Amino acid sequence: MTDIIIPPNTARIRELNDAFRSTFIGGRVFITEGIRARGQAFESACVEAVQTFSDFTEDNDPYHEHNFGRVVIEGTNVFWKIDYYARDLAHGSENPADGFHTTRVMTIMLASEY
Rank of each mutant, 00 (worst) to 15 (best):
Y114Q: 07
M109A: 15
A111V: 00
G39Y: 04
G39V: 05
H66N: 14
N95K: 02
F20A: 02
F100W: 08
K81M: 06
I31Q: 07
G99P: 07
G75A: 10
I25F: 12
R12W: 00
S54C: 10
I82D: 05
Q40E: 15
F53R: 04
V71T: 11
V105S: 07
G34F: 10
G69Y: 06
I35M: 06
Y84A: 05
H91A: 15
A90N: 07
I5S: 12
H64E: 13
I108M: 06
T2S: 06
F68Y: 15
D18R: 02
N95W: 04
E65R: 14
F42A: 12
S22L: 00
T102Q: 02
T102F: 13
E58S: 14
G39C: 05
F79R: 08
R28P: 00
V78D: 04
E94S: 14
N95P: 02
Y85E: 10
E43I: 00
D98Y: 10
E58Q: 14
E58Y: 14
E74A: 15
S44V: 02
L89H: 11
S112M: 01
A41L: 04
D59I: 04
H64W: 13
M109I: 05
A11W: 00
E94A: 13
A97W: 12
P62M: 08
V71Q: 04
H101E: 13
G69P: 10
D18T: 08
D98P: 05
V71S: 07
F68V: 10
R36I: 09
G34N: 05
D98H: 12
F30W: 04
F53N: 05
E113H: 13
G75K: 01
C46V: 08
A19I: 00
S54H: 15
Y114V: 10
F56A: 12
D83N: 14
G39N: 05
E113A: 08
G92Y: 14
